[in-house]
């Protein structure tokens, strides 16, 4: 079997899992919205500063499908832009987190000895602190902004990736092909990049998909607490927070934004399981 036919079998396996396919569809919708937000949203200008008191607090109807918020902005449009925000946030946070986590975990597991001890204890310390608390503590140091929120979340997230990669590399480091590479004279760096990293990739991808949902959720929680992007940036968590005070009368704000979060998180979680099948090349 060549590399490409192996991948084809993987896709077939993926397609067998109906739930994963559903997840993939959900994510596709979200991505589409995110990328083409200015064209998909019925009122793209509502993503910015708009004051439209005439149409404020409209329930879902013909003109504004999901209703409007307290200053008259279209909820649907803001959710669509909110998706873009969330995905960007998730992608950046996970990218940073995977990079740091993989570097730490792989180095600790492969080099062993004192390096392992030091690196993994640091990882454990970070893991011991509850994620929300840690993020809030870091954010408390500066003004709330999108960038700081991302930094804070990456700080919370990397230990999980470190642990994951640590476990994988530890189980692989005595495998035949690793020893063979060492005997040939490959340097530790080459062994880590060329032999070990490709074996971590499938798990990392799967975890990244699972994480996406939770990172977005964490971001929404921080925004809900007022620590995310400042207004008028459309942010799902902030929207839930804003709408919370008006429940249950002006319910559509919180509920619709909440549904948005739900769809994104659910989609990524469903796909994560299927992704494992896609990459499953039984060694």
């Amino acid at each position: 079997m060549t590399q490409s036919s192996a991948r084809w079998r993987g896709w077939r396996r993926f397609a067998r899992n109906k739930l994963s396919v559903l997840g993939a569809v959900l994510i596709a919708v979200v991505f589409f919205c995110a990328i083409f937000a200015p064209y998909v949203a019925p009122y793209p200008e509502h993503a910015g500063v708009v004051v439209n008191f005439l149409d404020a607090n409209q329930p879902p109807g013909a003109k504004y499908w999901l209703g409007t918020d307290t200053v008259g902005r279209d909820v649907l449009s803001r959710i669509i832009f909110g998706f873009r925000n969330s995905l960007m946030l998730g992608a950046v946070v996970i990218a940073i987190s995977i990079t740091i986590g993989t570097a730490v975990g792989m180095t600790a597991a492969y080099l062993g000895g004192k390096t392992e001890l030091v690196l993994m204890r640091i990882t454990d310390i970070f893991l011991a602190i509850p994620s929300l608390v840690l993020a809030m503590a870091i954010l408390g140091l500066a003004k709330p902004s999108q960038l700081y929120a991302m930094i804070a979340m990456a700080t919370v997230w990397w230990p999980w990736h470190a642990r994951l990669v640590y476990g994988i590399v530890r189980s692989l480091k005595y495998e035949g092909f690793v020893v063979a590479a060492e005997v040939v004279g490959a340097s530790p760096l080459r062994v880590m990049f060329s032999e070990l990293l490709p074996n971590c990739a499938p798990n990392l991808f799967t975890k990244a998909s699972l994480d996406m949902g939770f990172v977005i959720l964490l971001g929404a929680s921080l925004s809900f607490l007022g620590m995310g992007a400042p207004p008028p940036t459309p942010d799902l968590g902030t929207m839930v927070s804003e709408g919370a005070q008006y429940l249950p009368d002006i319910w559509w704000l919180s509920v619709m934004a909440g549904m948005g979060i739900f769809i994104v998180v659910l989609g990524f979680n469903l796909v994560a399981d299927g992704l494992r099948d896609l990459f499953d090349i039984v060694g």
């Binding site: 035949g176 092909f177 060329s194 490709p198 074996n199 990739a201 060694g283």
Partner: peptide, 8 residues
Amino acid sequence: YSTLNPRK
């Protein structure tokens, strides 16, 4: 079965 890297 372990002498070759399954991903290469």
